[in-house]
Amino acid sequence: MKADVTVDCLGLYCPMPIVHTAKKIKEMQPGQVLEVVADDEGIKVDMPNWAKMTGNEFLGIEEEGKKLHVFVKKAQS
């Protein structure tokens, strides 16, 4: 999947990946896609829930061994 912006959360645990995601999304334009690279497994369940909570669109996860590429699309506000 292609992303407009990437944020590196490798080595970070809850709640930090969500905090960085929220900060980045704030700076982005509606419709742009954010890629969060993380290795805390919790994000697999956390990110869809975060998206539901904030109204952004969870696009999916690509797993590359322990490295997780999580994609979220910023909602039209």
Binding site: P15, I18, V19, A22, M53
Partner: peptide, 11 residues
């Protein structure tokens, strides 16, 4: 603080 920043990050 974990819950607080998580909540704030969730809008």
């Amino acid at each position: 603080f974990n819950i607080a920043v998580g909540g704030a990050s969730s809008g």
